[in-house]
Each structure stands twice: as C-alpha cells, then as structure tokens.
C-alpha cells in the first residue's frame, strides 16, 4: 500500500516496528481522507457557479468552474475591513495573552510563593462558574468594553487551561537552571527573561497558536458586544451570512414588503458562503507549519545541554 513508500528512517527496525509503522500510516491516512473529503466539498462549492451549485450534485470537483464567488466576496468591501479587525485582534490579543499568561504561570510556578494553591484554586473556579449572559454584559458595559475594539482582547486575555499548561511546562524545566540564574544574581525577572522564556518555545508556540486561532475563530464577541458592523471581525461577517440561512426556516412574513425583503436577504448562495469560509480559513491554516518546528523533538533538552 501507499504507506510502504514512507519507510521509517530509523536504522534498527524489528518486524514488530515495521508492523507498527504500517498500521500507523494506514490509520493516519484513513483519518486524513475522512477529514479531507468533506472539506474538499467546501472548496469545490466555492469554485462552482452559485445558481448551478444550488441544483445539488457538486461533490469534490466544481461542475461549472468560476472565480466569481471570490470576486464577489472581496468586492463587498466589508470583508476587507473586517479582515483588518481580525488581524489586529489576533496579533494584539495573542501577544498580550502570552505576556500576561507567561508572567502569571512563572509566578505560580515558584514554590516559595505564599498563597500559590489558593490562587490556583481561585483561578480554576472561574473555569466552572460563568457569570451568565446578563451579569457579564453589565460588567463589560461598566468597563466601557461595549462597542469598543478591546472587547475582543481583554475578555479572553488569560485562559485557565493555558495558564495551567504553561505552569506545568515550567515545572518540567530543570530547577537547577533557575537556581543557577538566581545564584548569578538574576532576580525573578531576570530568571524569567533569560532562562525560562528561551526554554519555553514549545509551550509558547502551542499556547500562542491556540490563542491566535481562538481569536481568529471567534464571532460571538462581534455579534453580541458590537452594535456597529464596522467593527466586526471576519468571522462575525461570515456567521451572519450563515445564520441567515438558518433563520430563514422560521421566517414569518406578514406583508409583501417583508416578504420581498426576506427573499432579498437570502440571495447569498451556498457557493458564496463557501468562498467566504475558504477566505476566512486559509490564512490561519498557513500558520501551523511555522509553529510546528517548535515541537520538534528534543527542543527542550537540546537547549538545556547547549
């Protein structure tokens, strides 16, 4: 099978090892196919003429190839300006999140810190209890976050999960290194910046990626906390396109003007929506390969030895 072409590069491999790699490749390839096929459908639809696609039967290849859907999405200027918002929130949000989270994780990693356990418990607590829609909205509005760009950044500044992951990663860095730095006269800040940060690339990469993608994917904040579509990120614009299809099935019309308006607003074809999906997804997909190199084996230990 196909998997035979990718022989493991290991020098010594027993028959059992060979069996393991065959099974591995088979499973991974099967999984990729299962995942890829439906996604191909999205791609095919996006390159197909909208009216033609509505007739059904477009699976993995466009039947009537066209770039019109993409052209149309870009022509509607709102997606370009929405992109600006998305990029801004992703960069600013991820940077600030990493800064605040890594500071806190480092502090909580120091065993001599009094009140460590209590603080961690208190932080975990927030993962289980939400404020509920109304109190949260009231508080954001009190903080002036409604209709404000910072509502994209501040509420998602520190995630409990990432904080704890980062702290546990710091746990894995040999303590001798911190100790040595402290003996050299580095304070906590010095230890953090000179020892811990350079060694934490893998975890920074993972948390950075997760945070960036969360920022990229979030449509809710735009939909709920922004009353002006001018500050919407791309995902909110997209969600609006998609939800229009959803709400259509409950459409109640009482008069002709409403009926016309309703049928006007649903002229967005499926193909156009899929083009929008591709446009909103493609850029962030490209990020992963760059992040991946930080997960290469031995990053940590190599650094320690060097």
């Amino acid at each position: 099978m196909e998997s035979q072409h990718h022989k493991p590069m290991k020098v010594r491999s027993t028959p059992a090892d060979k069996a393991v790699s065959v099974v591995t490749y088979v499973i991974v390839i099967a999984l990729c196919l299962v995942i890829l096929l439906p996604c191909l459908n999205v791609l095919a639809l996006s390159f197909n003429d909208g009216k033609d696609a509505a007739r059904g039967g477009v699976y993995f290849f466009p039947r009537m190839f066209t770039l019109m859907n993409y052209k149309e999405v870009f022509q509607d200027g709102s997606i370009i300006s929405a992109y600006r918002i998305t990029l801004a929130r992703t960069f600013i949000g991820t940077f600030l999140s990493l800064a605040v989270t890594s500071f806190a994780a480092f502090a909580l990693n120091q065993k001599e810190l009094p009140g460590r356990g209590i603080i961690i418990f208190a932080i975990t607590f927030t993962m289980l209890f939400g404020g509920g829609t109304i109190p949260t909205y009231v508080q954001y509005s009190r903080l002036g976050l409604i209709d404000n760009f910072w509502v994209y950044v501040i509420p998602s500044l520190v995630s409990v999960t990432y904080l704890i992951m980062m702290r546990s990663f710091f746990d894995g860095i040999p303590y001798e290194l911190q100790e040595a730095a402290k003996l050299d006269g580095c304070g906590y800040f010095g230890t953090f910046f000179r020892v811990m940060l350079p060694l934490s690339k893998p975890v920074l990469a993972v948390v950075g990626l997760y945070t960036a993608v969360n920022h990229w994917n979030d449509w809710f904040a735009g939909a709920f906390y922004m009353t002006s579509s001018k500050l919407w990120p791309v995902q909110t614009v997209l969600q609006q396109m998609l939800s229009r299809a959803m709400s259509a099935s409950t459409q109640q019309t009482e008069n002709v003007a409403a009926a016309i308006a309703a049928s006007q607003s649903s002229v967005t074809t499926d193909s156009l929506k899929m083009a929008a999906v591709v446009i909103t997804t493609a850029p962030i997909l490209c990020v992963y390969p760059f992040v991946q190199k930080y997960f290469a084996k031995g990053t940590l230990i190599g650094a320690v030895k060097g």
Partner: peptide, 25 residues
C-alpha cells in the same frame, strides 16, 4: 441616523442584555 444591529439569531438575547445593562441607544 446611526443604526446599530446584530446578526439575526442573537436578536432577543441582545435586546435583553442591552436593556439589562441600561445600554439601549
């Protein structure tokens, strides 16, 4: 005029939240 709106499916939730926060325009 300055007209604010939210995507369709969050209408009633937004209405309730904005009233609750005293944030209606």
């Amino acid at each position: 005029l300055e007209i604010g709106y939210t995507p369709g499916d969050s209408d009633s939730k937004t209405l309730a939240a904005q009233l609750a926060a005293g944030k209606i325009p």
